[in-house]
Amino acid sequence: MRRLSRALGPAGGAGALAVVVILALALVGPFVAPHGAAERVGAAFVAPTSEAWLGTDQLGRDVLSRLLHGGRSMLLLSCAALGLAYLVGGAIGLVAALAPGPVETALMRPLDVLLALPPFLVLAVLATGSGRGAVVIVAAVGLANIPGIARVVRTAALEVSVRGWVEAATARGERIAAIACREILPNITKPLLADAGVRITTAISLVGTANFLGLGLQPPLADWGLMIAENRSGLLLQPWAVLAPALCIAVLAVGVNVTADALTQPGRRYGGTPAAIEGGRQ
């Protein structure tokens, strides 16, 4: 615990705390919400009262309750998309690194084109081709991340694959799969983690954007992105209906990014072993 807090530093600690709070809000929220997500409790756009702490939305639903219900979808969709992207992208990257030549070209060239496409375009094309919904969001966010992940994994794996211990494993005739899992994967976790922080942030951002634009989840579902979109017309009357979900997304995204940034800082240089100053012992 102490090691973790030292690794994070004050800013990272605050970020991590913020992430934990929002995660708790999103996961536990639906069980403690005073009202159902689609339940009308009064008139539309009523300012906060002692009954409805954050007021009501454009259909007269309790904003606090919808806020508590609306975090899960964003987290689940982001996780599903990234999980998919890491499975597919990671596999492609590893194979490309271990099978150079035509296999590598066949795998990586199309991905390079995909990498040049803005993530939003991937979403736009898929949503047009197969309609709106949660599946499209997961597919689009996943697809947008696959080329980047494949590249990071391939670069890291390539660097490791020429190391002595991998050569030794190859020379004793270990199977490719064993080399990938035993010799390479455990040694590329650092660059993968450094890259993952930004990926989580952008995935959250893209999922939120899709829902906000109405390309993903549909009303009357409670979702932070959707809430902002549907209540924008009442921004002047009842700003909390928009600001509360906006702040939640902001705190989550910023928290993740700050934490990841703190974790991947190279640390205080020369704070550690004095041996490093003299170039270590070799």
Binding site: R163, G164, W165, E167, A168, A171, E183, P186, N187, Q282
Partner: peptide, 13 residues
Amino acid sequence: LVPQNPADTLDPS
């Protein structure tokens, strides 16, 4: 084979 570089001849993990 005994490889060249002591820094990476063994799996650090």
